[in-house]
Amino acid sequence: MRTKPAESRRTAGSSSPDSLGGDELGYDFRIGSSRQPLLFEVKASQGEVGQIELGESEVPTAQRHTGSDRWRILMVTSVPEPSRLRVAMLPNPFSPRGRDLYQEEGGALRLSYRL
């Protein structure tokens, strides 16, 4: 099962233009007003097991933040079934915490997960 990015990038963050990310930035929104805010990429799936596909701007952004633990994935699962919907914060796949959580799945960067 493949995941798709969240439909709306503007609903997850605050209304401040500074909190919004974008495809070219490698994240969907950021939280925190400090010099090192948390950066979140939102992914969604139909179930609790599937694949996450990171885009061409997401990979280098995640790699740049490997040591800081600032870049994270918000995984929204079971989207078609609101009673089972779940949001989980997953670590950066390039970070020490994330390396053992994911399994690479092919030529593009596709990662398997199980919640």
Rank of each mutant, 00 (worst) to 15 (best):
M1P: 10
T3Q: 04
T3G: 12
K4A: 10
K4G: 10
P5W: 02
A6D: 06
E7P: 01
S8R: 09
T11A: 09
T11H: 05
A12S: 11
A12K: 14
A12R: 07
S14Q: 05
S15D: 11
P17Y: 09
P17C: 02
P17S: 06
D18I: 09
S19E: 06
L20K: 06
G22F: 03
D23V: 09
D23S: 11
E24P: 03
E24H: 08
G26W: 03
Y27A: 03
I31Y: 10
I31Q: 06
G32E: 04
G32S: 09
S33T: 15
S33W: 13
P37Q: 01
P37V: 07
P37S: 03
P37A: 04
L38I: 15
F40P: 00
F40Y: 15
E41Y: 06
E41I: 04
E41A: 14
V42E: 02
K43T: 03
A44I: 00
G47L: 01
E48G: 15
E48V: 14
Q51L: 15
Q51W: 11
I52Q: 01
E53Q: 08
E53I: 08
L54E: 00
L54F: 09
L54I: 09
E56C: 11
S57M: 15
S57V: 04
S57A: 12
E58F: 04
E58I: 10
P60Q: 05
T61S: 15
A62R: 00
R64C: 11
R64D: 15
H65W: 07
H65N: 14
T66H: 14
T66E: 14
G67E: 14
G67S: 15
W71Q: 07
W71T: 04
R72F: 00
I73Y: 03
L74M: 10
V76W: 02
T77R: 01
S78P: 05
V79E: 08
V79W: 05
P80Y: 08
P80H: 04
P80K: 07
P82C: 03
S83T: 05
L85M: 15
L85W: 08
R86N: 08
V87T: 15
A88Y: 01
M89Q: 14
L90H: 03
L90C: 02
P91A: 06
P91W: 02
P93D: 02
P93L: 05
F94D: 04
P96K: 08
P96T: 02
P96N: 08
P96D: 03
D100G: 12
Y102A: 02
Q103W: 00
Q103H: 09
E105L: 04
G107N: 07
A108S: 11
A108C: 13
L109V: 12
L109G: 01
R110Q: 12
L111A: 01
L111M: 03
Y113A: 05
R114G: 13
R114C: 09
R114E: 10
R114L: 14
L115N: 10
L115G: 09
